[in-house]
Amino acid sequence: MSAEGSLAISPAARDALQTWLETQSALMDWSDRTVEAYRGDLGEFLAFIALHEGGTQGMAALARVGVSDMRAWMARSRASGVGPRSLARKLSAVKSFYRWLADREGFDATAVLSARSPKYQRKLPRPLAEADAAQILAQVGEQDARQWISARDIAVVTLLYGCGLRISEALSLTAEALPLGESLRILGKGQKERVVPVIAPARRAVEVYLDLCPWPMEPGAPVFRAVKGGALAPRTIQAAMAKARAQMGLPASATPHALRHSFATHLLNAGGDLRAIQELLGHASLATTQAYTAVDSARLMDVYRKAHPRG
């Protein structure tokens, strides 16, 4: 956002944005990074509307936003190099803000809420092949000569692949979750709770790590520890995965999150129910989980193209 654009945003609009960010962050448990992303997207929109209207005009200008204003903003965004996927994200942020603002201020936000999102090709999840997923679990454990750290890294990635956890979910486990049973209660995005089954290999991997870990598992303490005893950072596991995939010749898409994709894809390929997989992953929308059916369809079409005789 330009300095001119930032100055054009009225104090009232700036205050409304800050209030919305604080409210949504509390409700959805947003990270600081997410808050700043929304602040940037909405700040750019508010600045555009202010300048489009001729300068700082307070909340009245926001209530007057019409179809032509939305088209002008989207055209300006595309002209400045914003791709369709990024513009769709920005528009979603604007609509969320306007739903809240229109309810609070009592105006009709139909023009904003009816704006059509640009079409774009959604990126499909990129899971690992089953053999590669199994091998990388062991390969990750070979990145550090210290036995307890090796066991720790194996335990983390086994939970990601075996239970479909996000890396933040695995690393947020505390001593209260121990000993791991046949199921685990996870607090995911937006403070949504779900229960996931814990397969025997994951339980064993965690038990091996706990036997070797030099740090006591006191109440409230993180299960997975850094070298000096603090909570383990995601970047440590990401680095171990990066080394392992380089050794195996796997693409850069073979990240810790790819293990979660692999969990879902392999479960679906084995006949898993899509609704059940949605619950296991903690997806708010079934549409998100359905991306894995597209992965399977893409794989089958690739096999078909390679096998089909050509005239």
Score class of each variant (00 low, 15 high):
residue 76 R to E: 12
residue 248 M to E: 02
residue 227 V to A: 05
residue 280 L to S: 07
residue 111 A to V: 10
residue 105 E to N: 12
residue 247 Q to K: 11
residue 63 A to T: 13
residue 244 A to R: 02
residue 227 V to T: 13
residue 10 S to E: 07
residue 296 D to Q: 15
residue 253 S to R: 10
residue 148 W to E: 14
residue 243 K to R: 15
residue 186 I to D: 10
residue 253 S to F: 09
residue 136 I to Y: 00
residue 48 F to E: 05
residue 149 I to F: 04
residue 265 T to D: 06
residue 300 L to C: 03
residue 125 P to L: 12
residue 92 S to I: 05
residue 197 P to E: 15
residue 163 C to V: 15
residue 242 A to V: 01
residue 22 E to Q: 14
residue 33 R to P: 00
residue 201 P to V: 07
residue 247 Q to E: 05
residue 48 F to P: 04
residue 178 L to W: 01
residue 198 V to S: 07
residue 53 E to R: 15
residue 20 W to K: 04
residue 304 Y to W: 13
residue 244 A to D: 08
residue 88 A to W: 06
residue 299 R to P: 01
residue 207 E to H: 06
residue 24 Q to T: 04
residue 120 Y to I: 08
residue 139 Q to E: 15
residue 197 P to T: 14
residue 69 D to S: 03
residue 115 A to S: 11
residue 80 S to G: 12
residue 151 A to T: 02
residue 2 S to R: 11
residue 135 Q to N: 08
residue 98 Y to C: 06
residue 112 V to E: 09
residue 264 A to R: 06
residue 249 G to D: 08
residue 42 L to E: 02
residue 69 D to Y: 03
residue 99 R to D: 11
residue 41 D to W: 00
residue 229 G to H: 01
residue 128 L to K: 12
residue 200 A to W: 04
residue 105 E to Q: 15
residue 146 R to H: 14
residue 18 Q to Y: 08
residue 305 R to G: 06
residue 275 R to W: 13
residue 180 L to Y: 09
residue 112 V to R: 01
residue 120 Y to N: 00
residue 290 Q to A: 14
residue 105 E to P: 14
residue 300 L to E: 03
residue 180 L to R: 08
residue 143 Q to A: 06
residue 167 I to W: 01
residue 195 V to Y: 14
residue 134 A to L: 09
residue 241 M to Q: 03
residue 17 L to Y: 04
residue 175 A to Y: 08
residue 256 P to Q: 07
residue 54 G to R: 05
residue 30 W to S: 04
residue 309 P to S: 09
residue 172 S to R: 05
residue 176 E to F: 04
residue 124 L to T: 14
residue 84 P to L: 11
residue 86 S to V: 13
residue 226 A to Q: 09
residue 289 T to W: 06
residue 48 F to Q: 06
residue 262 S to W: 05
residue 292 Y to G: 09
residue 307 A to W: 11
residue 231 A to T: 10
residue 299 R to K: 11
residue 265 T to H: 12
residue 3 A to S: 07
residue 56 T to F: 01
residue 267 L to G: 11
residue 17 L to D: 01
residue 260 R to D: 00
residue 260 R to L: 02
residue 266 H to L: 11
residue 237 I to W: 01
residue 50 A to F: 02
residue 44 E to G: 03
residue 155 A to F: 04
residue 158 T to D: 03
residue 273 D to G: 13
residue 163 C to Q: 14
residue 99 R to V: 05
residue 208 V to D: 03
residue 48 F to I: 05
residue 286 L to V: 10
residue 83 G to K: 05
residue 159 L to C: 07
residue 172 S to H: 05
residue 27 L to W: 10
residue 309 P to G: 07
residue 97 F to P: 01
residue 58 G to C: 15
residue 190 G to P: 13
residue 255 T to Y: 02
residue 94 V to P: 00
residue 245 R to L: 04
residue 105 E to R: 15
residue 101 L to M: 12
residue 26 A to K: 02
residue 105 E to W: 15
residue 124 L to H: 03
residue 138 A to C: 05
